[in-house]
Structure formats: structure tokens, C-alpha cells
Design a protein around this nucleic acid. Structure first.
Length: 435
RNA sequence: GUGAGCGUAGCUCAACGGUAGAGCACUAGGUUGUGGUCCUAGCGGUUGGGGGUUCGAAUCCCCUCGCUCACCCCA
């Protein structure tokens, strides 16, 4: 706990960097994020979900009650601090508890309709960074509160698969399982713990620890030595109560009817403690060790645990960074319609006026602001990716025209300044450069 | 928190004990008003930071910071 100053920092100038585990999302990557976000909003809207934006920090109790005081996330991975007013706050490590907090705070369950929300935003966990894992990462999540219908579970799983498929992500693998609830979980846990005790000597050190902390997670072990043991342990899927078994079969029935490919994975046990009954996970082989793109499940009981009525819920969260990583290569779209080039620097006022006019008509344009030679401006125009260059010189201006040069073909012709915007729009449309 | 690998110009890399180089990129010129090819020239690094060994360190040793991958955990 003792803080020792250990930062030589000898040199005069130490480059400033983004904090460990955080990153800057810069063009062209940021355009990929934007396209994912746009497609996400459209897809979710088709299923009746509305966006909810909650604060990125909450009173720490929100996560203690929601995520769980004993969970690893809350115990070891939160960015938790006391603000100047003495409030105990936590940067949100996941999206579900804040949504439920807001649902309760604003009495959104009042109508008894199923409340459907989605969120997109940063989450924070103090972990060792790795491929597809960051300290500030971004999640896209959905929550549906107010129904325990298996149809809802199936719909949400279907939406998740449709969504990721529409984004163009290939090699998706959907696994589903049921982890039971109060009806069958306590009895099963006893059986599981007893069974594990028999094999303790054969289990890895990590799994012996899991046995103490969270016996279910032994199923998650990747240790080779644990695999034979796991095979012999009782599976919760075989110990479900009749009603939970029926619920799970119904979910699977829907998926089968719809042709959604899935695998029942008895070993799937999600990390968060609040999951009940249906759990699912979608992974992609396009990623490394952190191959889980999306995970979710039902969390009946969580709303009550957070101080509300007994409202059932189901949802999922997906990692935006991982989705972007798994995305297929896409063509870059031009971010400019034209680049304005002047023959000499004293024409800058005319160039500025022209650009104001073009922008007013909805066209995207820019120019060189460093008084560089025309050749340099043309190089910049080329680099900018703009499909067209608009050239202004004394000759053109005296005639009230400009030279419109299409960069790809190299063709160039005079166009009256008055109709430039229209002509340009037509040219761009014709060549599919409207991006 | 644990383990392994790696940090040299904007980028990708070379030099592996004798005071740092290439390609690409960038800038300018060849073209007195025109980019993307070509040619020429130029800019650019106290080799992540600190300490040590040595006559001499990018190169060897230690510490530190960071990156990467994996464990863990999870999106």
C-alpha cells in the first residue's frame, strides 16, 4: 500500500501518451467505428430498442449491488474514487447496472410494457491490456426488462446474430446454455462442489481456487489437466428444474425454427454472478485469445436485488473494439468532395468565398492554408482523396469560371462558378464518389 | 497480479561492442498555372528513460516506463 515515488523522468521532454490500456481512434479506423455504430442503431431500432445514455460514473453501490460485491470486476478491476465532495464513485465497468438504476429512478417499469434499451459507450476495467482488451473499452449492449418469455430470449439472441452477420463478420459461433435459477441452482451447486472435492488433487491450481471462489467457473478452465475432470463433473443443464428445462427448450426451439445456428455448450458459464437461466455467447475465430464478441443472458432477480420490484430481464453486451477487429476489410470512402486549388496566394479570398458557397450547398471541401505552390496544392489534393480539384486562377476568374479536374481520370474542363455545385454533384454521383 | 517477447527517423526495418543506415513517407526542384509515374536534392534520430561495465554501448548488465502476446478475467 505504501506509495513510493519511482519515476526517474530524467530527460527534459518525455512524450505525452495516452494512459495504459487506452487508445486514440483515428481516421480511417474511426470511420469503421462510425459505420458499426450507425448500422447498430438501425438494426436495434428494427427490434424496438431505444437508446439510453447513462453517466459513465455512478455511485459505487450501483455496481456493488448490480455487478456484485464479490465479483472480481468490482473487487479488483474498478476505477473507484472519492470526488471532492466525498462521494464514493466508480467508473462504470459494465452497462447493465446503470441501466437498471435509471429504469428504477425514472419509474420506467410503470407501464408494464417490456422496456427495451440499448447503449453504446465506454466502460472501464483495470486489467492488463491485451489484443481486444483495454482498460477503457466500448460496449454496445441491450436490455429488455419486464418479461420472462422464452420468445424474448430467442428474439434477442436472433437479433445479436443478425446484427453481427449484417456487419459482415464471418465465422460467428453461437453457444447457449442454461445456468438455472433459485429453483435448481442451490441443489446443483451442492452436487457440483461435492463432485469437485473428489477431483481436487487432479485439478489445476487455478481451478482449485475457482472451486473455492466460484465453482461454476471451473468449467471455463483452459488448463489441459482440468479437461478430464470437467468431463466428469455434473452439468447444470442436466439438473434443471422442469420449468427451467422447458424454458430453455423453448428458447432453443425458436432458434432452430428460425434457422439460427447454435451449439448447446454445457460448459458455458458467464462471469457475472447475476445470470439466471439462459446464457449465451458469440465468438469469432477472427480474433485472438479474447475471441468473445458478445455475451449475455437472462438476469431475473437483478432488478429486485437493486431495490426494485421483481422484474425479469435479459440482455447482452458486445465489445466494440472486438467487433471492429473482426470486421472484414472495407473500402475507404472519400471524406471530401473536392479540394480547392489556387494558382496564386492572392486568390485566397475568392477560394474562401467559393468554399463557403459549396459548403452551403452541402458539398465537402477544403483547401491549402499554407500559401504553397500550385504543384504542392495539387499533391495535397491528391493525398486528400478528394475525387475532384477545383482550380482557380486569374484566367478563370476573369471569365467567372473555374477548372474542374477529376482526379482519377485527369480530365478537366471549365465550369461556371454559378453552377459548380450542381455540376460537381452530378460528376460525383456519376462516379459513385458521393461517400 | 503472473509469464514470455519487443522498444532504432512519421511508418516498416537494418546495423548486434568501434561514435546510426535503407525503403516508403514528407519538403523543394526538374515542368514560367496542374496531382498520382520518373529523376535530383533536402529535411528528419542525444537508438523509450535512468544508471552501470568498457578506452569506446543502439549493441553487454541492472532498474524503470511502455508496447505485444498469453495466463487470469471478460466485451
Amino acid at each position: 500500500m505504501s506509495e513510493t515515488e519511482q519515476q526517474p523522468e530524467g530527460g527534459a521532454r518525455q512524450a505525452l501518451r495516452a494512459p495504459r490500456g487506452t487508445r486514440d481512434v483515428i481516421s480511417p479506423e474511426v470511420e469503421r467505428w462510425q459505420s458499426v455504430e450507425g448500422a447498430t442503431r438501425e438494426t436495434f431500432a428494427r427490434y424496438g430498442f431505444r437508446e439510453m445514455r447513462t453517466p459513465i460514473f455512478e455511485d459505487s453501490v450501483v455496481f456493488e449491488k448490480g455487478t456484485g460485491e464479490t465479483s472480481q470486476i468490482v473487487q479488483k478491476e474498478t476505477y473507484r474514487f472519492t470526488d471532492l465532495g466525498g462521494h464514493d464513485l466508480t467508473l462504470r465497468p459494465e452497462g447493465t447496472p446503470p441501466v437498471i438504476r435509471a429504469y428504477l429512478e425514472h419509474k420506467l417499469g410503470h407501464s408494464k410494457d417490456v422496456a427495451r434499451f440499448y447503449y453504446i459507450g465506454p466502460m472501464f476495467r483495470y486489467e492488463r491490456p491485451q489484443k481486444g482488451r483495454y482498460r477503457q473499452f466500448h460496449q454496445i449492449g441491450v436490455e429488455a426488462l419486464g418479461s420472462e418469455s422464452a420468445a424474448l430470449d430467442a428474439e434477442i439472441i436472433d437479433m445479436a446474430m443478425t446484427w453481427l452477420g449484417d456487419l459482415g463478420i464471418e465465422s460467428l459461433r453461437l453457444v447457449v446454455n442454461s445456468v438455472g435459477d433459485v429453483d435448481d441452482r442451490p441443489a446443483y451447486m451442492e452436487k457440483l462442489v461435492d463432485a469437485q472435492k473428489v477431483f481436487l488433487g487432479e485439478m489445476s491450481e487455478d481451478s482449485r481456487r475457482r472451486h473455492e471462489v466460484n465453482p461454476l467457473r471451473v468449467f471455463d478452465s483452459k488448463e489441459p489437466e482440468d479437461q478430464p475432470v470437467i468431463e466428469k463433473l455434473p452439468k447444470i443443464i442436466d439438473h434443471l428444474s422442469p420449468q427451467n428445462r422447458a424454458h430453455f427448450d423453448e428458447v432453443c426451439g425458436y432458434l432452430s425454427d428460425w434457422g439460427v445456428g447454435y451449439t448447446i455448450e454445457p460448459r458455458l458459464v458467464r462471469g457475472l454472478d447475476y445470470y439466471r437461466r439462459t446464457v449465451f455467447e458469440i465468438s469469432s475465430s477472427a480474433l485472438g485469445a479474447q475471441d468473445s464478441l458478445l455475451g449475455g443472458g437472462r438476469y431475473d432477480g437483478l432488478v429486485e436485488q437493486m431495490g426494485g420490484d421483481d422484474v425479469p430481464g435479459v440482455g447482452f453486451a458486445a465489445g466494440l473494439e472486438r467487433i471492429v477487429l473482426a470486421l472484414p476489410e472495407g473500402a475507404e470512402t472519400a471524406s471530401l468532395d473536392c479540394y480547392v486549388v489556387t494558382v496564386s496566394r492572392d486568390l485566397m479570398p475568392q477560394a474562401m468565398a467559393l468554399m463557403r458557397d459549396l459548403r452551403g450547398r452541402g458539398l465537402r471541401c477544403t483547401a491549402d492554408f499554407q500559401d504553397r505552390s500550385m504543384k504542392a496544392q495539387m499533391k495535397a489534393a491528391n493525398r486528400s482523396g478528394a475525387p475532384a480539384a477545383v482550380i482557380l486562377g486569374p484566367d478563370e476568374l476573369s471569365k467567372g469560371v473555374c477548372n474542374l479536374k477529376m482526379m482519377e481520370s485527369g480530365e478537366q474542363h471549365e465550369v461556371s462558378l454559378e453552377i459548380l455545385a450542381t455540376v460537381l454533384a452530378e460528376e460525383l454521383h456519376g462516379t459513385g464518389h458521393t461517400g
